Simulated assay, not measured.
Amino acid sequence: MRHFTLTQLRYFAVVAELESMTQAAARLLVSQSAVSTAMAELERTLGAQLFLRNPSTGLKLTPTGRRFALDLKGFLDHADSLFESAYGAAETLTGELTVGVFSPLASFRLPAILKAFEATHPGVDVTFLEADLASLQTALREGRCDLALMYGHGLGSGFSSQVLERVPPHVIVPEGHRAANTPGQEIALKDLAGEPLILLDLPHSREYYESLFALAGVAPNVRHRFAGYETVRSFVAQGHGYALLNQRVYNDVPYSGGRVVPLRLTDEFPPSEVMLVRLESTLPTRRALAFDEICRRLYGATRP
């Protein structure tokens, strides 16, 4: 039977985060020799090398060490819950939680989610990592965020997900466009063929929008490409083209002034799925599960 201590594991978690024995010792308020000895004993007990030690490049995690660090986060959280339950405080959550969020989604429900979460769990320090879909998958794999609020476009293997909402695509055109006063405020994508398109150009989102044009049998006339949701809306409002989007902004006046007119699409296109995603191979922390609970309540989703 292999024996290691919680102290060794907690030391390792900090060293793995900082990749520095010196900085870890300073944060833990112990001597550097105590941290170094604990890491050597942990590696000996596990029979595996967790760090690469090089005087010129410093301390780096080995692939084994990186996997161990990912698995350890949930284990330490559950160890804390055992301690709390012994003192009748199992419902009190403390510590840090990092949530990834897809940039165009950040301004929609996330502020309300955080407000509800902080009201329920004031002891948890929540930080956000805002990025595109591809970068969020990388951040989850590297353990830089506990879970992510994102679309499911291009989601690779090794992740578990909870669908919160399905959002159909729609079109926005500038005020005064020939389709702006269409009865029923709807249009087919082919009716915009040849007109300049302002494309929301983000990894996986771009491919999703391109697939919709392919389904409609339309070759898009891309005039401008932007990574910013509000930039796309602003260019449309100023008459530079139309855009294909998902999340509906209920204020139709963008930063640039002017006005955009949203139109429903009559095409039968697949919606974008807003979901919470986490790494399948790691045990979710109680903080992550609590955040999941708040999201599902505000989005009205249920467990699968």
Rank of each mutant, 00 (worst) to 15 (best):
D146I: 03
L147C: 10
L147G: 05
L147D: 00
A148C: 02
A148I: 01
A148R: 10
A148E: 06
M150A: 04
M150R: 12
M150Q: 13
M150L: 09
Y151I: 03
Y151E: 11
Y151P: 00
G152Q: 14
G152R: 07
H153F: 15
G154M: 11
G154A: 07
G154L: 01
L155C: 04
L155D: 10
L155T: 08
L155M: 06
G156L: 13
G156E: 15
G156H: 09
S157P: 00
G158T: 08
G158C: 05
F159Y: 11
S160A: 06
S161I: 07
S161C: 12
Q162T: 10
Q162G: 08
V163N: 07
L164K: 09
L164E: 09
E165T: 05
E165L: 14
E165R: 11
R166P: 00
R166S: 11
V167M: 05
P168D: 05
P168Y: 06
P169Q: 08
P169I: 15
P169H: 01
H170V: 14
H170C: 09
V171G: 09
V171M: 12
V171A: 15
V171I: 14
I172F: 09
V173C: 09
V173G: 13
V173A: 00
V173F: 08
P174L: 05
E175S: 12
E175V: 09
E175T: 08
E175H: 08
G176T: 09
G176Y: 09
G176V: 01
G176R: 10
H177S: 03
H177P: 14
H177M: 12
H177T: 03
H177K: 03
H177Y: 13
A179W: 15
A180P: 03
A180W: 15
A180L: 12
N181Q: 15
T182M: 11
T182P: 02
P183V: 06
G184P: 01
G184M: 05
G184W: 11
G184R: 04
Q185M: 08
E186N: 14
I187R: 01
I187C: 08
I187V: 15
I187E: 07
A188F: 10
A188W: 07
L189Y: 07
K190F: 13
D191E: 11
D191K: 03
L192G: 08
A193N: 13
A193L: 07
A193K: 15
G194H: 13
G194T: 12
E195C: 14
P196R: 04
P196H: 12
L197F: 11
L197P: 12
L197G: 13
I198V: 14
L199D: 14
L199C: 14
L200C: 01
L200S: 02
L200D: 09
L200T: 02
L200W: 03
D201N: 06
D201W: 02
D201I: 00
D201L: 00
L202A: 00
L202M: 03
P203N: 01
P203K: 00
H204Q: 05
H204M: 06
H204G: 00
S205M: 07
S205L: 04
S205H: 10
S205K: 02
S205V: 09
R206S: 00
R206A: 07
R206Q: 04
R206C: 04
